[in-house]
């Protein structure tokens, strides 16, 4: 089975008056159906660009991108609309940007349902069902201004889920929240992933969030650099412990990004010496450049 989300050599270039900014420089990524994945990266690393492309709001300059079988580069306007309507849902960082301020929680959900021509008689029950799933059924008739930030984000998740999407994208969903609310929102996303089987992709800065995710991808300079896989192991005493293994991403032509801290620790720069061993590759720092200079 092919991955649920697959990007291959994705490039996105913004150009302005002769100046080009490569937001994505050949990003490759694969996420399986039903996975809960976090993407982390520094500011300007291309996280948000990637999410815009995946949610169908932006079009890549080159490369391939597929989500749930939709080729994001080849979609017609009609397909794109259907894609946004039924395939993906998303939650943005700014709580105010996810909801229309003059509509109540139920109305915000009903608007999304109205857009997809869901029959009117089922809308209220669908909204109630979603709010109950998010554990905020008591907020049904409140407007965003009457809710806390965490409550707003959970309503936003409910809105994103309105049309039963296969994938939920969340762009820094806890960025504006305190720790307690962050946890509530993350729990809500995990509930969605576990109970509905929805694929969830979270872009975040929040270590607390990424630490709870099985797979964390790091973007650097518009490319995937490393992946951390976490697993929970139970030892012979019945104690659970979380193990994290870090992987680097090797692209098609063999390029590799070493983690920042490795570079610093060994003062790796400019030229490094490689040695091929039977089962691994060694990378050695070199003082060559200084000597010749």
């Amino acid at each position: 089975m092919s991955p649920h989300i697959r990007c291959t050599d994705l490039v996105r270039i913004f150009s302005a008056e002769g100046v080009e900014v490569q937001a994505l420089q050949g990003l490759t990524l694969a996420i399986e159906r039903g996975e809960l994945t976090a993407i982390i990266g520094a500011s300007g690393s291309g996280k948000s660009t990637l999410l815009s492309i995946l949610s169908g709001l932006d079009v890549p300059t080159a490369g391939r991108a597929e989500v749930a079988g939709h080729d994001l580069l080849a979609m017609t306007a009609r397909e794109r609309t259907r894609y946004r309507r039924h395939t993906v849902g998303f939650v943005w960082q700014q709580t105010s940007r996810n909801l229309l301020p003059y509509l109540t929680a139920v109305e915000n959900i009903a608007t999304a349902l109205s857009v997809s021509h869901t029959p009117r008689r089922t809308r209220r029950s669908r909204a109630t069902e979603l709010l109950e799933l998010m554990d905020i059924a008591n907020l049904a008739d409140r407007r965003p201004a009457q809710m806390s930030g965490g409550q707003q984000q959970r309503v936003a998740i409910a809105v994103a889920l309105a049309n039963s999407p296969e994938v939920i994208f969340a762009d820094e969903p806890t960025g504006e929240l305190d720790e307690h609310n962050s946890q509530l929102v993350f729990d809500a996303l995990r509930t969605v992933n576990v109970e509905l089987g929805t694929t969830v992709l979270i872009v975040t800065h929040d270590q607390a969030v990424s630490a709870q995710v099985r797979r964390t991808l790091q973007i650097r300079d518009g490319r995937m650099s490393t992946e951390v896989h976490r697993s929970t192991r139970t030892d012979e005493h019945g104690n659970e412990s979380t193990h994290a293994e870090e992987y680097a991403v090797l692209d098609r032509v063999g390029r590799l990004q070493l983690p920042e801290e490795y570079l610093r620790a060994l003062a790796l720069r400019d030229l490094v010496r490689l040695e091929l061993e039977p089962d691994h590759v060694e990378v050695h720092p070199t003082a060559l450049r200084k000597d010749t200079a």
């Binding site: 949610s55 709001l57 306007a77 009609r78 609309t81 259907r82 894609y83 946004r84 309507r85 039924h86 849902g89 998303f90 940007r97 996810n98 229309l100 608007t111 999304a112 857009v115 997809s116 809105v159 309105a162 049309n163």
Partner: peptide, 14 residues
């Protein structure tokens, strides 16, 4: 505009 963009992103057609 903000509402249009949001609803459009949620799948409303042009």
């Amino acid at each position: 505009r903000a509402a249009l963009v949001l609803i459009g992103a949620r799948g409303a057609s042009g």
